[in-house]
């Protein structure tokens, strides 16, 4: 390896002090530091700074009251989330379409085997203004969980795209982007209708980066079913 110049060495000093350089780069930098007083001084300053900051910052353990409060809230959450104990009010509040979708999800394995024999399950979820995005995302997460290898595409159009715009939050103030990113990391694709953006005069840059644009949502749903063997589900 050729010797490092100061310009090459300087940006490496911090990574070296932080233990982030690989062996080869570390060796090259050490050789340079042995020769170069200015870089050596920089290295010494950074090391002293780290030591001073390390000594000055002390971690404070979480207070016992906080531990207890979290324990209480998690227990309450578990109670709340207990399956098959739906409260009547919640049941009435769930729109019929979603109940139908939930029922379809429960039956999904049988239906898909027929649609995609032997292959991966493929499904396109249709999201429009009648969809409650929080419920839809929860159903999709459950589906992904119970069907490994599932190929899923969410196509949103009309007012159904709103949860894919930057800064969108659910009624509890939780940002949708977190859940969308989590699903995307599990292979769920999000596609937004370009016609909707044009019609509603929404700047495409407002669509979160996790979602892709397609020219027409409806055409995309048709294409996925006709050309790529996707099953259709309205959420």
């Amino acid at each position: 390896m050729t010797a490092l110049t100061c310009a090459q060495a300087r940006p490496l000093v911090q990574a070296y002090v932080d233990g982030e350089l690989d062996t080869a780069a570390s060796l090259a930098l050490e050789r340079h530091l042995a020769r170069c007083e200015a870089c050596r001084a920089e290295h010494g300053t950074l090391r002293r700074l780290r030591a001073a900051v390390g000594a000055g910052l002390t971690a404070e353990p979480a207070p016992a009251a906080l531990r207890r409060a979290i324990g209480r809230r998690l227990r309450a959450e578990r109670e709340r989330a207990r399956p098959w104990r739906l409260r009547t009010r919640a049941l009435v509040a769930v729109p019929a379409a979603i109940l139908v979708a939930a029922a379809a999800l429960a039956l999904a394995p049988i239906a898909y085997e027929r649609l995609a024999p032997g292959g991966a399950e493929k499904i396109v979820y249709h999201v429009n203004e009648t969809t409650d995005p929080a419920t839809a995302l929860r159903n999709i997460a459950n589906h992904v969980q119970s069907a490994p290898g599932l190929k899923a595409v969410v196509v949103a159009h009309n007012n159904g795209i709103d949860f894919l715009l930057a800064g969108a939050r659910d009624k509890d103030g939780e940002p949708f982007a977190v859940r969308v990113a989590a699903l995307k990391s599990q292979g769920v694709d999000f596609r937004v209708c370009g016609n909707t953006l044009a019609r509603r005069e929404i700047d495409p840059r407002r669509v979160i980066p996790a979602a892709k644009l397609v020219p027409s949502g409806v055409a995309e749903i048709g294409r996925l079913q006709a050309k790529e063997g996707y099953a259709y589900m309205r959420l």
Binding site: A41, E42, T45, R48, A52, A55, G56
Partner: peptide
């Protein structure tokens, strides 16, 4: 990176001084 000021006290002095910790 180039203009990190020099002149920090040695770490052991800093570590011992409560004042320095607050700083």
């Amino acid at each position: 990176h180039a203009d990190t000021p020099n002149g920090l006290p040695p770490p052991e002095e800093v570590a011992m001084a409560r004042e320095a910790q607050a700083l």
